[in-house]
Design a protein around this nucleic acid. Sequence first.
DNA 1: GCGTTGAATGTAAGCGCTTACATAATTTCA
DNA 2: TGAAATTATGTAAGCGCTTACATTCAACGC
Lengths: 345, 345
Amino acid sequence: MSRKAKEIEHNLPTLADVATRAGVSTATVSRCLNSPGQVQEHTRLRVMTAVQELGYSPNFGARALAARRTNTIGAIIPTMENAIFARAIQAFQEELHASGVTLLIASSSYSPEIEEEQIRALVARGADALLLIGHDRSPEVYQFLESRGVPVLISWVYDPALARLSIGFDNRLAMAGLAAEVLQLGHRNIGIISAECAGNDRARARVDGVHDAMRAQGLDPSMAHLIETHYSIENGGKALWHMMQHDPRPTAVICANDVLAVGAVQMARRLGLRVPDDISITGFDDIELARVVEPPLTTVHVPHREMGRQAARLLVDMVAGAPARESVRLETTLQIRGTLAAPPA
Amino acid sequence: MSRKAKEIEHNLPTLADVATRAGVSTATVSRCLNSPGQVQEHTRLRVMTAVQELGYSPNFGARALAARRTNTIGAIIPTMENAIFARAIQAFQEELHASGVTLLIASSSYSPEIEEEQIRALVARGADALLLIGHDRSPEVYQFLESRGVPVLISWVYDPALARLSIGFDNRLAMAGLAAEVLQLGHRNIGIISAECAGNDRARARVDGVHDAMRAQGLDPSMAHLIETHYSIENGGKALWHMMQHDPRPTAVICANDVLAVGAVQMARRLGLRVPDDISITGFDDIELARVVEPPLTTVHVPHREMGRQAARLLVDMVAGAPARESVRLETTLQIRGTLAAPPA
DNA sequence: GCGTTGAATGTAAGCGCTTACATAATTTCA
DNA sequence: TGAAATTATGTAAGCGCTTACATTCAACGC
């Protein structure tokens, strides 16, 4: 586009326009906007009037360029399609908004490549810090972030073995707790429907949790029938169907999240199985869906909103340069509901 | 922060650094990145190598400032907490991503004030265009957008009466179709659970749709018991409970969306009512929840993903300065499922 | 009254990039 | 073969803002 053409385009008022109109320098206008305390009351009023009259609003790019700071935090979540991350992100955004920080959200569709791309995009856009889900990603990515000086907070996991700052819960322990409950009812043929574990530490930890519980009962973890699939209701159903083709059929199916579990419950019924009389099914996350399905899902409740809120505070502090904080561990609670019972006699 | 302090901070490589290393001018580097076709293959290679070696990534602010374009599109949705908007937005984002455009999402919590704030924030950040839900907002907001030269696409509605470009479906007609189905089964005592209509044209249109259908059957629309509430499962339940305290009790409750309807179904069962034998309940949107609840919800299917995808294409074209397009009307389809039956004899 | 001080404001140098225009290198064609 | 046309690259002027430093000015103490 030619420069000519541009001139007849929208020419928004700039700081300089405001300065001229108010009869002050651009520096003063800038100060009125950013640190009003430094400016005499009456000149501030004059400036603000000019701002109003011109309908001025600052140019973000220029501001970011000059100030080397954007008041923007980025978050990359695996998916927006189901409620798993939505609630936490909503709380995260509300809390950030209260601190005057804008949130940029991207979703990676559970793809490490897309995630890396999104990370670079957000950093390039000047995100002051990033919220990421889970630890699993290539060292290069962390190195890149480090070299950029972009603080990162990992959420959805609490793993004391890793040095990186995180906020979340112990997926493994939480799942082990639920699995222990299942085993204690006498179930011995266990099925596990998990997300794909490669590149997903939460999924791995949850599977490990089930295995831990089995070992604690003197069972061989390899006896559990494990199916990995993409998170979706449909895939949960398919996985259950596959499991039921094998001998011995599981009497309890532990799912790595509620979405899979709901699919499994629906498929079970379609197969003519009564839940929980013929088969027990459990989920993880305690999203809305868990209470809607019939019978309501036994699952692990995760304090999503709390996690989002605290993550926001942590990140704001990190950007402000507060001294390093410790990882935060949130508690999960078992929600024993209608889909869990003793195995059929 | 003092300039001194800054110097010991992260000093990222700039375009100039890349240029020096590759032994070319900054202009050439810029061209390699933005219009590689204009550059000789071998110099491009040299430049790209330098980019790699330095780990260079462009500064968004500077780029936006110089190019007066951000390749960013903003979307403001009422909520991220449930799936209503999630699916459309996911598709929207995927399509934008394919066009090299970044999506900025904000949620307004159904508050016009917050929405206006978010609009201004996104515009200030240089959003090249905006996707908004519904037409209802103050003229000042539209004026502001116009003065900024920011193209806007309204989604979730198709209302030929309004000149503004939109993509969506005819909420009124769709709901009228569903209501006609309900009335035809013989229902005469109708309840309507709606979102708050003030500032929500979709909600209003849906209620109007029910009224249209009633009029078509020679019924007085004011006979319908209307309750307005915030979208949530819980509120859907509460609303149903209230309705059941009044005489005559409705034999069919038409809900403005699936979330409310699911709450209503669950409350009905808690009250000992059989759905659909004692009471029919319908939803709108056809989100996942609709199939999970027992019995599955009769609802209006909305092509969310298609809407998101097409919205993205439209907006990309608009930013590129394509000639004005016409509003797009998408078709909805009735999903008659288990929650709808004739009224009890 | 005059130097001193401190607060309020102004001056101007970038921030890192794009792009119009100038220049240099290459190709084309009579 | 040389002038013209075409293509590749370089030069440098901003884009709109922040902020270190310079300047001005009023208030104050002696």
